[in-house]
């Protein structure tokens, strides 16, 4: 597998670490913001545990730890392993054209 790091170019996948689905978003809540603890826990349960686990193109996090240490957001087909796009995490360096909006 080859992954096109938007900073470094195409590299072999041994340089990267995979985290998983990039779609779930960490819930935002205000401490003592009056939300019921159950609801907040429900939201975190979804975020931490539940996955669409798509057979097809999914958005996912990869870490170029064996390279420039950037977190990347890739769209990849889980059936064919084909990458549709690879963009940089919003906080990886300065804003780039190819940076993922989160």
């Amino acid at each position: 597998m080859r992954i096109a790091c938007p900073f470094c170019g195409e590299r072999e996948n041994g340089e990267f670490t995979y985290l998983g689905d990039a779609s779930p978003k960490r819930p935002n809540f205000a401490v003592d913001g009056g939300e019921s603890p159950e609801r907040v826990e429900d939201a975190f349960h979804d975020y931490v545990y539940l996955r669409d686990n798509l057979a097809g193109v999914m958005r996912e996090y990869w870490y170029h730890g064996g390279g420039c240490r950037s977190w990347l957001v890739a769209e990849r087909n889980t059936v064919t392993h084909e990458f549709v796009s690879v963009t940089a995490a919003p906080g990886a360096g300065a804003a780039l054209a190819a940076q993922a909006g989160e």
């Binding site: 072999e12 996948n13 995979y18 798509l54 996912e60 889980t78 392993h81």
Partner: peptide, 13 residues
């Protein structure tokens, strides 16, 4: 291999 996959085949690393 470490990544989500339904491909039933892996890679070299």
């Amino acid at each position: 291999d470490g990544y989500n996959s339904y491909a039933q085949r892996g890679n070299m690393p």
